[in-house]
Design a protein around this nucleic acid. Sequence first.
DNA 1: CCGCCGTTCTGCTAGGAGCAGAACGACCGC
DNA 2: GCGGTCGTTCTGCTCCTAGCAGAACGGCGG
Lengths: 120, 120
Amino acid sequence: MAEILDFKRTPEPLWREALGRKLRETREDLGERLVDVADRAGISVQYLSEIERGRKEPSSEMIAAVAGALGIDLADLLIGIAGQVRNLRGGVVGGTQFRTSRPVGRPSGPVAMVGALMAA
Amino acid sequence: MAEILDFKRTPEPLWREALGRKLRETREDLGERLVDVADRAGISVQYLSEIERGRKEPSSEMIAAVAGALGIDLADLLIGIAGQVRNLRGGVVGGTQFRTSRPVGRPSGPVAMVGALMAA
DNA sequence: CCGCCGTTCTGCTAGGAGCAGAACGACCGC
DNA sequence: GCGGTCGTTCTGCTCCTAGCAGAACGGCGG
């Protein structure tokens, strides 16, 4: 760690970076402030800020707490992150990235199909 | 966190548990041993064992290393995990029930569902 | 000018990541 | 029975960082 040259921008994003991006997007879609979500999740505001920017590695309980505070479950979160990761692969990676996909991406469409896979 | 709200044995699985399950399934589908993957990922074998059982919280770099050693990228991994999480929602999650798992973990079902993302 | 909001410093502590080494129980073949 | 492989788990160890408090800072809007 502590490599001197860290502008080596990992070819594909790390887990914590993709997670943070999606969490921030979800929060902003809800029109909520950092302090609101942090308070509801029971964590400090600075820490939530660092999570959203991909600078800290949140534990599973933290992830569950933040996701719960945002009203999203783990499966939806993962699907959303996977989508962002795929977008970043072939699309704009640079800092100036609006577009943020579609306006309101709440309803996860392909849910039904997954649920129908197996009930056994 | 120290919140008192975890009286409920994790209504939905934690991130590290779902991740470990998927990693193990992927490895077994490849017919590889712990030592093979651990060696290729550059981590110790006991630690990989604990990751697969959801007992340790692997860093993003660890996840990338293991996923790389398994020849799977982050997006596919996340999709697979999301599928597993959804499956577990309706069935028995406790350790007493094993029916849901495949006999030897040979055929992994939800491969075809990869095409279901792209929305987010 | 003054609040509001997010970010980023400086600390600080407790916990756990991550490894080495070894022992253990299953399992399989001889 | 005995010896091999494979995974798990125990002990022990170091060192990093999760996670918080407190405060200060740079936008942005009025």
